[in-house]
């Protein structure tokens, strides 16, 4: 079943170029081919630095085909974070996605610089891609969850984390959720100091941080 989810559209920007950036993200993440094509100039230059190496496409059609091919097998695309800003006449766009594919969940992040023509169409795209990174906590089904709430280092965070990681078998993963700003920096350090392995760190749209820790001892 195909399910698409995306956050509510960003508030209207005062600068048209940022609107183009936001529209680009929406078109890519909702796989809206017509909208994506309408944003691109016919003679588009598309340069990419992918995990497999640098490559390039010419023309809007090739770019649409390339981008849609990346997400063709996704059951669901969730936008975890996105930004769009003008930088000296170019448009800088970033987006981090959680992509559910038949083989499991993946994170992917792309950083894009756009050049626009006078009519607002995109004339060139320079794209840097993280590749599809498998989400550790979804690999084995051996993930456990602990919501640390707003506990900080003076409120017993270390003890609570130690008790929770100690309650799961060695080799399993504890996904710790925190909203405390200091704990966001502290939890990975705590985990490493206690001899465990930090498998992934992921920000959520509501401002929390999910830290996946594998119990090592």
């Amino acid at each position: 079943m195909l399910t698409l989810r995306a956050p509510d559209p960003a508030p209207a920007s005062s600068t048209p170029s940022r609107d183009v950036g936001a529209a680009f993200v929406t078109a890519v993440t909702t796989r809206d081919i017509d909208s994506l094509r309408s944003l691109l100039a016919d003679e588009l230059r598309f340069r990419m630095l992918l995990p497999s190496g640098p490559t390039a496409d010419s023309g809007a059609g090739a770019a649409v085909d390339r981008i849609t091919s990346w997400f063709a097998d996704a059951d669901e695309i969730e936008v975890l974070a996105s930004t769009s800003a003008e930088v000296g006449g170019r448009v800088a766009v970033t987006y981090r996605l959680r992509v559910h594919r038949p083989g499991g969940g993946h994170l992917i992040e792309q950083h894009v610089m756009l050049d626009l023509a006078d009519d607002g169409r995109i004339t060139s795209i320079d794209l840097l891609c993280s590749g599809f990174r498998r989400i550790a906590s979804e690999e084995s089904g051996q993930a456990h969850e602990y919501d640390a709430g707003d506990l900080g280092c003076a409120d017993g965070l270390a003890g609570a984390f130690r008790d929770n990681i100690g309650s799961i078998p060695v080799g399993h993963v504890l996904v710790v959720s925190t909203s405390d700003p200091a704990a966001k920096e502290d939890l990975p350090s705590l985990a490493r100091l206690m001899g465990h392995a930090v498998r992934s760190i992921e920000a959520t749209p509501d401002g929390r941080l999910l830290v996946s820790v594998e119990r090592r001892r």
Binding site: G152, C153, A154, L157, A158, D180, P181, A182, A183, E185, D186, L187, S189, L190, R192, L193
Partner: peptide, 30 residues
């Protein structure tokens, strides 16, 4: 910025200036 000192003073992330981060003791210890 020490998290244990920032929290009781009501300092949140959206009040921070460029270059500042709220951290906890474990970060420093590590």
């Amino acid at each position: 910025l020490c998290g244990a000192c920032a929290k009781p003073r009501g300092i949140a992330e959206d009040q921070l200036v460029k270059g500042s981060t709220i951290v906890g003791a474990a970060k420093v210890v590590e």
